[in-house]
């Protein structure tokens, strides 16, 4: 490993799907523009939060960089090796260096396998450990994620959602990955369990120096967990920067509206008066110019007419808005 090379470097990643329309009579070819030129760098040991609403392309991004989904163009350098159009050998290597944690804790596990077997399988397939020590290592991994090791013989359906998610994390760790992509991995859990999993991830990250891409729609969780945040809207990053700076001084109007919409547990803070109107448009027909302009409270004609604004800013805090705006939404302190 070369320390000067970032762990992951994504340049101009584009993912377009051929969308099938649902209409009975109008069968027109439509392209879903899920990701439109996304660039990003993740250094070793860093946790990046990727936030955005549904349809923003954040999950597509997570899968594309792990080569679990198709990508249309762009480059993905993992530890300096190009995997975007890599050989099957490169992909196999990428799979040994990365792991994914899924949203649905039950769905991500084979319902016909005990959770112990599911973890053991990873170790056997990748020859991580001699067969004699297999059981020991499985128990060790389960203990690492705070699971009762007795539960190794259970199947997913006999476990709770939180327990299944712990197994999902243990299985990801079994591969000893250098990068974990966690896709909405606490969204399906109850609040009291969410906290347990977030804390587990924080502890594991400290203990194992993990690099992580944490994909979530819940900004409060991202704020707790991540070193850096990238906010996505309609397949583009609109703001990116160190967590504290993005949350304390968001530059892009979309980020500002997202942050102001987080419901806080404070009975004296009513629903904000100024709400972001509308909903994200379909990724099939993107608006001209800045994709956010139809919902943007400060949009002007030039937002629609000029080309897509580039990310700019200083000290690693970048925003893709042609106005270097002050906050127009009331921000929580």
């Amino acid at each position: 490993m070369n320390s000067s090379v970032p762990l992951l470097e994504v340049n101009d990643l584009v993912v377009h799907f051929a969308g099938s329309t649902m209409g009975l009579f109008n069968r027109s070819d439509q392209t879903v523009k899920a990701l439109n030129s996304v660039s990003m760098t993740i250094r070793s040991g860093e946790t990046l939060g990727l936030v955005g609403e549904s349809g923003s392309g954040k999950s597509t991004f997570g899968r594309a960089i792990l080569r679990l989904g198709e990508l249309t163009s762009g480059s993905v350098l993992f530890d300096g090796v190009e995997v975007a159009n890599g050989t099957s050998g490169d992909i196999a290597w990428l799979r040994r260096e990365t792991a994914m944690v899924f949203q649905d804790p039950y769905g991500a596990l084979n319902p016909r396998m005990t959770v112990g077997d599911a973890i053991a399988e990873v170790l056997t397939v990748h020859n991580k450990i001699p067969t004699a020590k297999l059981n020991e290592r499985v128990q060790e991994l389960l203990a690492l994620v705070g699971m009762d090791t007795e539960l190794a013989s259970r199947r997913p359906a006999d476990l709770s959602g939180g327990q299944c998610q712990r197994v999902g994390i243990a299985r990801a760790l079994a591969i000893e990955p250098r990068l974990i992509v966690a896709d909405e991995c606490v969204a399906a859990l109850d609040v009291s369990i969410q906290g347990q999993i977030i804390n587990l991830l924080i502890e594991l990250r400290e203990k194992m120096k993990l690099s992580m891409i944490f994909i979530a729609h819940d900004l409060a969780i991202v704020r707790r967990l991540c070193d850096r945040v990238a906010v996505m809207y309609l397949g583009r990053i609109v703001e990116e920067g160190p967590t504290d700076r993005v949350f304390n001084a968001p530059c892009h109007p979309y980020t500002q509206s997202l942050i102001s919409a987080i419901p806080e547990i404070d009975p004296d803070k009513p629903l904000p008066e100024q709400l972001l109107g509308g909903e994200p448009p379909s990724p099939i027909s993107l608006p001209n110019g800045c994709a956010f302009h139809p919902r943007c409270p400060i949009a002007q004609d030039k937002c629609r007419d000029s080309p897509v604004p580039a990310l700019r800013g200083e000290d690693g805090h970048l925003s893709a808005c042609i106005f270097s705006s002050e906050s127009i939404f009331p921000q929580p302190t």
């Binding site: 709770s160 939180g162 327990q163 109850d190 609040v191 009291s192 369990i193 969410q194 906290g195 347990q196 977030i198 804390n199 924080i202 502890e203 819940d218 409060a220 969780i221 704020r223 707790r224 967590t243 504290d244 949350f247 987080i262 419901p263 806080e264 547990i265």
Partner: peptide, 22 residues
């Protein structure tokens, strides 16, 4: 339940939790 909301408290780092399962 109030303490374990991720938006609460210091905003950063560990969340307070309720141990165990419902």
């Amino acid at each position: 339940l109030i303490d374990c909301q991720p938006s609460g408290g210091s905003h950063r780092g560990l969340v307070k939790t309720i141990a165990g399962q419902p």
